[in-house]
Design a protein around this nucleic acid. Sequence first.
DNA 1: CCGAGTTAGTTCGCAGTTTGGCCTAATTCG
DNA 2: CGAATTAGGCCAAACTGCGAACTAACTCGG
Lengths: 415, 415
Amino acid sequence: MATRSTAEAQRTGGRTDAASMRRANTGLILRHLRDQGGRSRARLAAETGLSKATMSTLIAELVERGLVVEGQPDRAGAVGRPGLTVTLDGRGVCGLGVEISVDYLSLIAVDLSGTVIRESTRPIDAANLPAADVIARVADLLGETLASLRSAGVRCVAITVAAPGFADSDTGIVRLASNLGWRDVALVDDLKQSLGQEVPPISAQHDAKLGAVAELAQLAGRDVEDLLYISGDVGVGGGIISGGQIMRGAKGSAGEIGHLPLDPAGRQCACGRRGCWETMVGLAAFLRLAADEADPVRNPGRPLEDRLRELHRRAEDGDERTLSALATVAEGLGAGVSILVDILDPLLVVLGGYFAWFEEWLIAPVADLVVERRLNPDTEVCRVVGSSLGLTSAARGGAHYSIDRVFQDPSVVSS
Amino acid sequence: MATRSTAEAQRTGGRTDAASMRRANTGLILRHLRDQGGRSRARLAAETGLSKATMSTLIAELVERGLVVEGQPDRAGAVGRPGLTVTLDGRGVCGLGVEISVDYLSLIAVDLSGTVIRESTRPIDAANLPAADVIARVADLLGETLASLRSAGVRCVAITVAAPGFADSDTGIVRLASNLGWRDVALVDDLKQSLGQEVPPISAQHDAKLGAVAELAQLAGRDVEDLLYISGDVGVGGGIISGGQIMRGAKGSAGEIGHLPLDPAGRQCACGRRGCWETMVGLAAFLRLAADEADPVRNPGRPLEDRLRELHRRAEDGDERTLSALATVAEGLGAGVSILVDILDPLLVVLGGYFAWFEEWLIAPVADLVVERRLNPDTEVCRVVGSSLGLTSAARGGAHYSIDRVFQDPSVVSS
DNA sequence: CCGAGTTAGTTCGCAGTTTGGCCTAATTCG
DNA sequence: CGAATTAGGCCAAACTGCGAACTAACTCGG
C-alpha cells in the first residue's frame, strides 16, 4: 500500500536517519506535554517509553529552543525526591492563520500552547476587488503582524492562508473560488513576492478543512481522531479529519458536501444543479425562509454579525417565522448530516458558521435525526455539537495548522 | 493534532529507537522494490536517499531473511561495472485472507510479490448455520492451508478475515453482520482457540474495506492513494482509501454507503428506512428488475455465478428486459457515485461485486453521470472502472493486508 | 535529630545505526 | 591494454538511545 509522505518523511525523502529519530522523539514529547499537560521528566519517560537518560537530553534541547520550561516541583509532599514539572512554554513562537472571506480578512496567531496572541479582522469587499488587490491587503496585514511579532520577540514558524475554494496545497494556487470570483490565482507565490525573502513558509488550504483543524485543536488530548466539521455560510463546506489527519482527496477537494442532491425538485443552485444541500440549509436559504426581502436582516449591506444577532434575538423572543425557518433548516441539516455520518463515521460532528449561532434550535433536532437514522442501534451514536469558535474558525485553524509543524519537528525553531 | 499510531509506532509505543530506524528503512527498500521493480543497490541508494553503505547492509539483511535475491547484471552494455539487480523474492512468505460470505468461504494466499499461491473456495450455507459452526469450517480451511504451506516451506505472516459486517479491528469481534445473522461474535478469539498457539496473528476487517485494499494492491506503484471501492452484492458496501490508508472511522464503520437515502419514495430497505441506495442498485433490485420471480435467474438455490452468467448472456444477446434493468441500475449507481465523488474526491472509483460482471453496460453511463455532475469543470474528473478481481476480492484484499505487515516491518519474518 | 528508604535526574560507557571516504571489482571506450 | 567509469564492500566517525551506576532531594519512623 502506498503511503502519502508525512511531514517528517518529506524532510529526508522517506528514509530515516539519526536526526529523524531525534526529531520524532522530541516531537513526541512536545505533543505529550500539549495533550497531557506538564509533568516531570520521570513521568514523561514512563509514559512515552523513552528512557530517563534520553528524556534528560531531549528536554534539555527543548529548553534550549525555548519551547518548554522547568517549573514548580511535582508531587510535593509525596515520598522521594520531587520532580520538577516540565511545561510547554511556547510564548516565543507562533503560527499564523489568515482567512480570506468575502467581506473580511481575519488573522489569528496562536503560540505553542494554543493561546491566541494576535487577532485582527479587517473588512474588505473581496468580491468586487481584483485578486491582486485582495492579496496586497493580505500581505499588508501579514507584514504588519510579522513586524509586531518580531518586535515582541516572537518567531512565526509558518503562515497558512484559508481560501474559500479549491486550493492546491502543493502549489499554493487557488483553482476556483467562486464567491471571490477567483480562478487559478497563485496566492502563495504572490504573497511570498510581496513579503520578501525573510518570511516563514506559506501554504494555502480550503477554509472548511482548516475549520476542522481548529475544532480538533480545541479538543487536543481528548482522543478525538475522526471528526466532521460543517461550515454554514452562503455555501456549505466540510472538513473531514480521519485518523487525526485532514482528508485531502486526490485533488485536494475532499469534503465538498454543499452539493449533496437532497431535493430533486428543489431550487436552482449556483453550481447549476437543482436542490443541492446548500440551497436548503445555506445562509441564503435560511434568510429567505426567515424574513421577507425587505427585512433589514436580508440587507446584504449590513454586517453579517448584526443580522444574525437580530435573528437570534427574534428566535429567543419566540418569533414564529424565525423558529419555523430554523426548524426547516434543522430538518435539512439532519438529513444531510445523517448521510455523512453513515459514510464517514466520525466521532463528532461540529456545526460551524451561522449554524453555531443558532445551536440552541439546530443541534437537538439534528442529533435526533442522526440517532433515528443510524444503522446499527447497538453502537454509540456520534455526537453533534455547535462550534464555539465563531466566524474566525478558519483563521484559527490555519494558525494551529501552522504551529503544528513544531509538534511534528521541534527543530524547525532554531535555538 | 492527534495521529493514529501506525504499525511501526505501535511496536515501540510511539517512540523511535535504533531498531525502529532500521525497520523503517528496510521497509522503505522493500516497498520501493515492489513499486518500482528490481534494480541495483546503487540505484536503490540514489532513489531512496540512503547511502550505499547502508544499502549494502540492509540488502544483506533482506537476503538473509529470504525476501529478496540478487539476480542478473543491471545495465548490461553501459560503461562501468554493472550492478547486480536486486529483486523481490518472497516466495517463502505469504499473507492469508479468508472471506466469509453467505454462500461460500473463500481463501487466498499471496506471496511478497503479490502472486496468488493458494486459492480455494468452499460452499457454505452460513446464514443457516450457527456462528460456531461457520467458524469451525473457517478454522478447518485455515488449518489445512497452513499445514500445506508449512510443508511447502512457506511461512504465513498474518491472517486477515473478511467479515461481511461491522468488525471491530481492535478486538476482533464482529458486532453485527446481518446477512449472516451474527451479533457480537468473537471471531478472532474463537479462531485463535481452534487453531492453537503456533498461529500467525489474526485480524478481522469489513469485506468492502478489504476489497478496496485488493484494488489498491492491483495498482501498486501507480501512485494511486485515494480510491473508492464499491461492492455490489445484496448489500452495497464501500471501502475508502485516503492518502494510502484504509479509512476506518471512529467506530470502524466508515464506508457504509449502502443506505444513502436516494429515493424518499422508494422501497422499504432491510435497515428499516425507505429508498436506500441498495434498494435501487443492490443485487436483489437488479434481479427484480431483470426477471420475473419464476425466472431461474431469481432462484436463490442456484449458484450466483451461474445466474449472473445467464444474465450476462441475455444482455449480450440484446434482451430488452435485461438491458433496461441495467440502465436503471446504472442510473441509480451514477447518482450515488457522483455524491460520493464529491465528498471523498477519489482518484479512482472501482465497481466490484456483480457490478463488475456487467461493466460493459454500467461503467460508461456511471462515468458520464459523474462527469455531468462534477462541480469544477476545470479539474480532471475521476475515473470509474470495473474490478477485475471477481467475487474473491475481499479474500484477496485480506491476503494483501496480511502481507503488508512485511512491507511495513520486514523483521516480522525471522531469518 | 538522624539514618533508612524512595523517587528524580544526571553521567557515562555501550550497542546499534547511518554516513562519507576509500578501496577493490568489473565493465566499456579509445 | 590502459584510462575512465560505475558498483559494491569495508571501516572509522558521528550520532542516537539505552541501561547501570551515581548523586540529589525528599519523607518517614524511631
